[in-house]
Amino acid sequence: MKTRFFALSLFLLISASVFAQSAKKYGKEITLKDKTKISSILDKPEDFVGKKVLVEGLIVNVCENRGCWMELAGDKPYTKIKIKVKDGEIVFPMTEKGKKALVEGEVYKITWTKEERMEAAKEEAEEKGTKPDFTGLTDSTWYQIKGLGAKINE
């Protein structure tokens, strides 16, 4: 019995090491070959709405609660773009901040009214336990990428 137990344990360990991943993959396999510069998307976002893109950048922020979004630094100074994924489908760990990521996803547009933004700021403040900041909130449109698959360099 002991011999069989150790043989089975050994088999499971060897199998696990064979299937172990060297690079961290999230979500679906990346299919696109050509990368799009984040600056190209930010410069003319309407040209990319609804299109699938492959972007690369430094992870500068990750959702603290559920890992359901991350922000990638752009190739031009002081720019970044948000990658949003479906809750639970892909979870970006907070420990990945500061690492380079390759992400495939679809560019989409979000339009919010001032009231909707105030409501979101209120919810965010409640989550963080701070006071909501409504200064400068107006009707606005911005662009994000719906993340489908990602690779993060170790």
């Binding site: 430094l58 500068v60 630094a73 100074p77 002081y78 901040k97 500061g98 690492k99």
Partner: peptide
Amino acid sequence: LTSSFRPSPEEIQLFVEGNT
């Protein structure tokens, strides 16, 4: 330091293992 980012000319983000 592993990497860094400038959100604006006045601000900097520095990334080290386990700390931002």
